[in-house]
Each structure stands twice: as structure tokens, then as C-alpha cells.
Design a protein around this nucleic acid. Structure first.
Lengths: 248, 248
DNA sequence: AGAATTTGTCTATTGATATAGGCAACTATA
DNA sequence: TATAGTTGCCTATATCAATAGACAAATTCT
């Protein structure tokens, strides 16, 4: 559908080598190359994109630096990384169970936590008063040692006092909520957008500048419909796709 | 959450002015500026981002060219464009009804149509034999005269012969399917990703190079679960967000 | 009227980006 | 062992991107 051959734009603020690197990443993520497959030779890529061979080399150098490609003098350039993870989103969105079968290990690392007054937006989502205390967790989702998500989550501080300790200990939202008597919960709403990664995303998700992140803003509720959690999650678009499950 | 103040990265293949333009667009889409509100003065933005005033001017010039901002000598620079459209996605995703209340007019324009053999991916999705004839429609969704989506859609050619004429006439998928006896249908699956817009997206969606598009790949089915439509849609991330409806 | 603020324009300089060509180094294969 | 194919590295040149400073032009406020 969107192969290697799409064209390249000049004078738009994005350098040619970055655009070409993006296309190659995309092709890999689409599954156009098998693992360890050889990329076409530099001279062929240069002709395909209508640029100089050196420009292609800049793109490849960036991806080698990133650990996506490996270049071997005399032999060729080879693909190291694999297809995108497919992250399911639905009424029962859970980090760990969602990636089952695609990765052997996954958990959520707590980067930091703090208590702050609720902004209007968060207060509305959680059904509490504006300015009431909320606990804010900064987390990173990891699967097989790779960062796959970066999230900021808010809980009502009164109801979920100490949840940051539970998160640090269990590495799981679901397990942490159990300690507060919540054995099941549902995804109430999700809003989805995309943007360029900012400095924080770059560091936390181990991305190269210029990368794109998918952003979800979600509210989780109890079975009774009571809001318990408000979260903004960022996913690296080059490594993750979101799959919207139908019924579930 | 992601305000104007996030930092800027150097030497990454994306020019500073483009990064700043992206952040301003994002802030507008987030609703940080009211319609016709004044942007902070160039000198203030320059200090905030840690760049020269001329660099900020390049970013503003790009957005003025794009029609997002209007600069007036001696007065300031003003926001023209409005908040993002929120496009709902769920079991009953429909183009027209989904945007009701947000726009006064919307329709789907048929750009071109063709008949081609089904690729493996499309054949699997539609439950037909690989190589069987399928009708391919290239369409653009428009709301109040602005392009909000660009889609490629496939139908089984045997069952839906002539659907391109129905689309051209009605400007609606739902209305066209009615002519083939389908009075209701459901969204079976949706896969979501994001990437930089390619040349075709740029032209069809009236975007500037470097823009980001949200990509959905979806299968629609009858109430009996029979697949009828396979579609890849692209949405300009700066103008559209996707809202995942809970129950529906 | 005058001062302050803000956008518009000009010149100049530096570093990054992209093109061009040539040749060395390494690998695989005929 | 040649030979073709591929990556690695060098020099050189032109254009774009970013910084710097100065001043003009338009608007707003005192």
C-alpha cells in the first residue's frame, strides 16, 4: 500500500535523509522486509528516491545508529528490527494481556509520581472538584526490553492514596487497582491523535528526533460507570500500531 | 499537557522552524488559543524556544502560507484556524453522521475508481479468492469545504458491480450500499497507525510537506458478519482527532 | 505628539544539507 | 584469481537553515 517508492519532498523543513529514513522504517514496520533481509544497494535507493547516493547514506547511517539496520562493507545493509507490535484498544484495554503472544516479557515501569491539584480537564474526567488533589504517575511500558509506551496517569488522591507504591511494586495498573477493591474496570472513552515526539518522548521511548508518536487520551471507569483513572499515553508510531477490537 | 513550551531538538533532520511550526499547530489544535487570539510576539516565542527571532519568523511564515495564522504589521499575529474535528470510530462508524454538530456540510467526493485483482491482504479481508476482481475507490471526505480524510476502499466487484456510480451520485457509502440491499453494517476491525504524509496525501488533503497523517485500516461487515468493504483512510493529524466510542 | 510595541526587510556570517565525482576496501562468485 | 558488486571515505561546491544586528513601517497607548 505504502511501499518504498513514495516520493520525497524538498524544501519543507524536513531534510531528505530524514524523510528517506522514515520511509525505510515504515517499510520495515509494514513487513516489506524479512528479518535479516538485505536492503537494496545504496545506488538503487538513490535512484529510486531521486537523490544522491550520499543522501541515502545519511539516512542509513541514522538507522544504523538507531540499531534498526546493520551495514557490512562489501556485502550490503541488513534489517535488524522486526514488525510493529499491535496494541489492542477496547473496552477491556490492559497493557500486559494485550501484548500476550507478541512478546515474552512486559511490564510497566514507574518513572516518577507526584501529587498535584486537578486541572479543569482532569477534574471533569474524574468527576471531582477542580483543584482537588490528584496523584500523577509517569510510567513507561516495556516489552522485551523495548520501550513501547510512555504514559501520564491521574487518580483521585483521596480514593487511591498510595497507589504509586503499589505500581512500583507490581508493575501493573490492574494489580494496583485490585488493592483498592477494584477487581474489574472498563475503558470508557479514548481520543486519538498523532504528533511529533517531544524531548521527553524521545528520551523515554528511545526515539530519534523527528519520530512520530500516537497519543491516546483515555478514561477508565468501574463497572458502575464511576471514573477512576485519566491517562494520556504516547506510543512510538514506528514500533506500535493500535488495533481497535470490535465487541470487546 | 503538551503546551507551547516543550523543547526543540537540533541536528536531527527536522529544521527548527518546522518543529516550531508543528508545536504552534499542536497548541492551536489543543485549544490553547481562542479563535482570532493573538500569538505571543515573535521575540517572546524566540526566547521561549531558545532560537533566533528569524527562525520563529520562518515558522510563522509557513503557517501564514498554510492559512492557519495571519500576521499584521504593528499589531501582532493571529490565529485563524479552529480546534480539531473529532471523528468518532466505533462499531457504527459513518462519515456523515459522525461529524454532525461539528460541521454544517459534509460529503465524500469520488476522486477515481478502477477494477483490479485482489491482493492477498484484500482477498483475506473480504473473504474472496486472491486475484478475484475488486472495485477500488479513491475518495476524499470534505467538511465545510475542508478536506478531512483521504481513503482507498475495496469492494468485491461481483457483488457490488457499479458501486462507483452510486458513490459518485450520492456522495455516501451508506447510501450506496443501500442500493445493494445492505441497510445496516458494522465496523468489524480497525488498525491504527501514523506516518508522515506522502505526496498523494499532501495534494489530496491540502497539507504542507512534513505533516502527519493518522492511518486507519478497517473492515466493514453485514449484520451477519459477512465482510463487504476493506478501507485504508488517512486523516490529517493537525485537523482531526479520532474518538473511540465505548459501547457503540 | 511622542513613546513603546510589534511585524517587515535588509545585510552578513556560520554550519548543516545535498550534489558530484573518484577511489579504496571488502565480499561473493564466476 | 580475476571481476563485479557493494560499502566506506575523501575532496569540492552550491544551497538551505540559523544566528546576529540594525533599522523601517505600522499600530497602540500615554
Amino acid at each position: 500500500m505504502t511501499g518504498l517508492a513514495s516520493s520525497i519532498e524538498r524544501r519543507n523543513g524536513v531534510s531528505l535523509w530524514r524523510q528517506i529514513a522514515d520511509r525505510i522504517l515504515q517499510a520495515i514496520a509494514n513487513g516489506d522486509f524479512a528479518q535479516n533481509a538485505a536492503l537494496p544497494p545504496e545506488i538503487v535507493l538513490a535512484e529510486r528516491y531521486g537523490v544522491n547516493r550520499h543522501t541515502v547514506r545519511s539516512a542509513i547511517a541514522a538507522l544504523v545508529q538507531e540499531g534498526v539496520l546493520k551495514a557490512e562493507q562489501g556485502r550490503g545493509t541488513f534489517v535488524l528490527s522486526r514488525k510493529r507490535l499491535s496494541y489492542p484498544i477496547g473496552a477491556r484495554t490492559r497493557f500486559s494481556t494485550g501484548l500476550q503472544g507478541q512478546t515474552s516479557e512486559r511490564h510497566i515501569a514507574l518513572l516518577s509520581s507526584s501529587t498535584e491539584p486537578a486541572s479543569r480537564r482532569i477534574a471533569e474526567a474524574l468527576g471531582i472538584a477542580k483543584g482537588a488533589a490528584v496523584i500523577r504517575l509517569e510510567t513507561r511500558g516495556e516489552a522485551d526490553g523495548h520501550a513501547v509506551s510512555r504514559a501520564t496517569t491521574w487518580f483521585d488522591a483521596k480514593r487511591f492514596a498510595g497507589i504509586e507504591a503499589a505500581m512500583a511494586e507490581t508493575g501493573s495498573i490492574t494489580a494496583s487497582l485490585k488493592r483498592f477493591g477494584i477487581i474489574d474496570y472498563l475503558r470508557h472513552s479514548t481520543v486519538l491523535s498523532a504528533r511529533h515526539a517531544d524531548a521527553d518522548d524521545l528520551a523515554a521511548l528511545d526515539l530519534q528526533p523527528g519520530a512520530i508518536v500516537l497519543v491516546t487520551i483515555a478514561v477508565n471507569v468501574t463497572l458502575d460507570g464511576e471514573p477512576i483513572q485519566f491517562a494520556e499515553s504516547r506510543f512510538p508510531a514506528e514500533r506500535v500500531e493500535l488495533r481497535l477490537s470490535a465487541g470487546d
